[in-house]
Amino acid sequence: MKDPYLKKLTDIPMEDYLVGGHVACQGCSASLGLRLTLKVLGKDTIVINGSGCMTLLPVYPTTPLRVPWIHLAIENSGAAGTALYYALRRKNIDANILAYAGDGATYDIGLQSLSGAAEKNIDMIYICYNNQSFGNTGHQRASSTPRASSTSTTPLGKVEVAKDMPAIMAAHRIPYVATACPSYPIDFLNKVKKAAEVKGMAFIDLLVPCPVGWGFDPAEGINIGRLAVRTGLWKLYEITDGKVSISYIPKKRKRVSEYLSAQGRFSHLSEGDIRRIQAEVDQEWDELEERGYGYEIMV
């Protein structure tokens, strides 16, 4: 196997293209995710943003971004990427196209536009920073919200399970799909690197713990992300050529209660609810183990 691009934290490039002084909340993993991504993609990158928390990074007349940035609306990052790809070719500008949009903008209102770009296999990197709600408008329910989570519009907890967005993207036959979390920066950035190197569209679903929406202390953001992965609730994996492969297998999975009880959004759950969630996760991972942590999802 090829050596990974990054092996340890100190391999991460020092240069920053998202600098300090912006208005994202303390402990925001979404802005951290962008900052890390730009370190890998470098200065020859154009960012497309769909309306959401990150839209408040450039506030006139200042901007914390040292790379070109365009925000048009919430639901059209895919369409903008398509146009940018062709326009940049015409202008002989060689740059990475990075779409950085929230889960509401991706799973819900922008799905059509994203699907259009994926069908055309546009050479762009689409990162969905996933705080599992419509964050900027006050954390309302989205199709990315996990079952049982309360939000400002599901006070009793969401009934439905979250959409399987990576599988939807893989079904477009794009060359690279992955999930990640900034709490695992080496894994995440190696995936960003692969996304940049691949010809065609790459999609990364990035879990970004959100202190405000999820109800935890801003200092705990990285920990919460780790717990999401170590409990097995957020799986880190890649899908290439229709093949899923788990990129991180928690050695001894932590109990989901540790993750759930650390967040306000799950505080209404009964012990029975938590047991049910634990049983579901256990079953999923048992199945994964049986399949050798890798399987085909498409024929």
Binding site: L56, P58, Y60, W69, I70, A95
Partner: peptide, 13 residues
């Protein structure tokens, strides 16, 4: 939109 001359477009005022 050109990395040679970075601009932020469509921001908040």
């Amino acid at each position: 939109l050109d990395p040679k001359e970075p601009m932020s477009m469509g921001g908040v005022v």
